[in-house]
Each structure stands twice: as structure tokens, then as C-alpha cells.
Write a protein that binds this DNA or RNA. Structure first.
Ligand SMILES: [Zn+2]
Ligand SMILES: [Zn+2]
Ligand SMILES: [Zn+2]
Ligand SMILES: [Zn+2]
Lengths: 137, 137
DNA sequence: GCATAAATGGAAATGATTTTCATTTTCATC
DNA sequence: GATGAAAATGAAAATCATTTCCATTTATGC
């Protein structure tokens, strides 16, 4: 079932979504979390959908523009996408084994907000990740 | 003149640096701030150095491995490099005009440290950037 | 139905980064 | 100074995500 936040945004949008956009939202909803355009395309293909890679990129771009999807970057620079509206959190990643812990970012949120206000920036988002070696490595 | 911190690190390194590594450190020192591999290559070429692009990539990779250079990402995913040892700071970047403000990250440092301790991670670093629209845009 | 605009997808183009591989340089040893 | 192994180098080719082109299909208003 579609998340409330997203549903609301979609409803608020004047324009009706294209079929592709809705498909992408559905996959992102189903998989939860981050995925690259290529991965999302593969998933859809595996499920029998003949959607083209170009369309996947286009749909994701449009969803990002409409603030329905967040765009982030993997460490290698590849773009990854996730639905907005999920609980916002950050990551603690092990440089060696890749183990990842989702962590609260209350302090970050406050920091970002404060800084944005101080310098007159609006409509701000932020990225914040911690990299290190986990206890096992 | 080479920054103290870097000089120290270089001295501490058992192995002697390759000529290319030293060249890259010199350019990064001279230009200060961030630059992509391609940009650094162009700068060197412009200055008459016939260094190959491959070597630039290799040198940067090796410097990153040795913690002498930091690797970050532009918004489009392109890798950018800078010398470590500069005063640690974060960025407030305008999504529209690209204007950048360097900001203090005291809160972040504390947050990263706290989280790392809580989950038993050591040798941690972090990334944290804020993106938004500046007052002019 | 018809005309027009929007959506779609395959193929080709782009552009950063990596890989391959033959050549050159460095360096220790004789 | 010669010599051979190991490290460094760079040109060209390969990768791979992403974008651009363009022809075809689909949706929409009349
Ligand atoms: Zn680990
Ligand atoms: Zn946050
Ligand atoms: Zn601006
Ligand atoms: Zn910091």
C-alpha cells in the first residue's frame, strides 16, 4: 500500500502521473530503501515489465524534480534513489565489510537547519554519513 | 610551501613517494580546495608536464589510500580531490548557482564520534553537506 | 475518427574511470 | 658501468552509468 506522505503529494500534484512514474513509485515502495536506476530497471524487467532503461531514468528524474524521490550517491558515484517520506536517517558504514547501521540524525537535522538559517539558505536538504571500521573488522 | 600536516605524513611514510604522487600533491597544494582528476590533469598539461591521465588517476588513488588526499563527489557524481590537513569543514551549497559557504561542523564532529562509539566503530571519518537555495536564487 | 501533444524505448553518443599491456625508469647488485 | 627484477608510466581499449536522438506508439481534446 502506498505511503500516506507520497499519496498526499501525488494527489496534490495537478498533473496526473505518467504510467512509468507510477510504476517506479510502486517498485520503490515495494523494495524500500535505496536502489540505482539500473537495479530498478532490472527488477521491473524481471517482473515481466518491458519498460525501457531510458524511461526509467526519465521517470526517476521527474520524480526527483517533483520531490517525490530523493537522489543520493553511492561511494562510487552511482546515483541511487529512494522514496521521500520514509523515516529520515543516516548511515554508519564499515569501510571493510560494508556492514551498515541506520542511525538517528537529530543533531544533524538541527545543525543543517541552523546553518541554513544563518546563511539565508532555504529549501535545504543534507547528506551525512559516517565511515569507519566495525567491531568485527 | 607544503602544509605541515602533509609534510609530516609524507615524512612518516616509510616508502618514498613516486614522482607522480609528489606532482599531484604539489598541484593540489597550489590550487587549494577541490579539483577533479580531469581538471588536475589539464592543469599539469597546461604547465608543460606530459603526465598521462592514467597516472593522474593512479596517483590520486594511491594518495587517497594513504589518507593524504580526501575523495569527495560533485553533485553529478564526479570524483573530486583535495589535500587532507586543511582545516576540516563542511559545505553549504546552492543547488542553483553553485555558491558555496564553508561552515563549522562542531555538532557533526560530536555526532559522528558519539555514534561511532555507540556502535563500536573505530577509525571513523564522515561526510556532511547541506544543499539548498541561497538568498540570491 | 483526427490532429496534436505526451510518452516510450532502442540505438548511438558521452564522459568519467578502469583495465590492459608494452615500454621506460629506478634501484640494488655485481 | 653493466644487468636484471620490480616499480612506474602512458596510450589505447574496455567499462559502465547516464544522456541524447529520433522514430514509433499512446493518450487526449474536439
Ligand atoms: Zn566491518
Ligand atoms: Zn538527516
Ligand atoms: Zn544560489
Ligand atoms: Zn566534520
Amino acid at each position: 500500500m502506498m505511503k500516506k506522505v507520497i499519496q498526499k503529494k501525488i494527489t496534490m500534484m495537478k498533473k496526473v502521473m505518467s504510467k512509468s512514474n507510477l510504476k517506479l513509485i510502486a517498485v520503490l515502495e515495494r523494495t524500500g530503501g535505496f536502489a540505482s536506476a539500473q537495479e530498478l530497471h532490472q527488477i521491473l524487467r524481471r517482473e515481466g515489465d518491458g519498460i525501457g532503461l531510458t524511461t526509467v531514468y526519465r521517470a526517476l528524474q521527474s520524480l526527483v524534480d517533483d520531490k517525490i524521490v530523493d537522489l543520493l550517491r553511492r561511494e562510487d558515484g552511482e546515483a541511487i534513489y529512494r522514496l521521500c517520506g520514509e523515516t529520515h536517517h543516516h548511515h554508519l558504514v564499515c569501510k571493510s565489510c560494508g556492514d551498515t547501521v541506520e542511525i538517528e540524525g537529530g543533531a544533524i537535522e538541527k545543525w543543517a537547519k541552523t546553518m541554513a538559517e544563518e546563511f539565508g539558505y532555504r529549501d535545504v536538504g543534507h547528506t551525512a554519513e559516517i565511515f569507519g571500521l566495525c567491531s568485527k573488522c
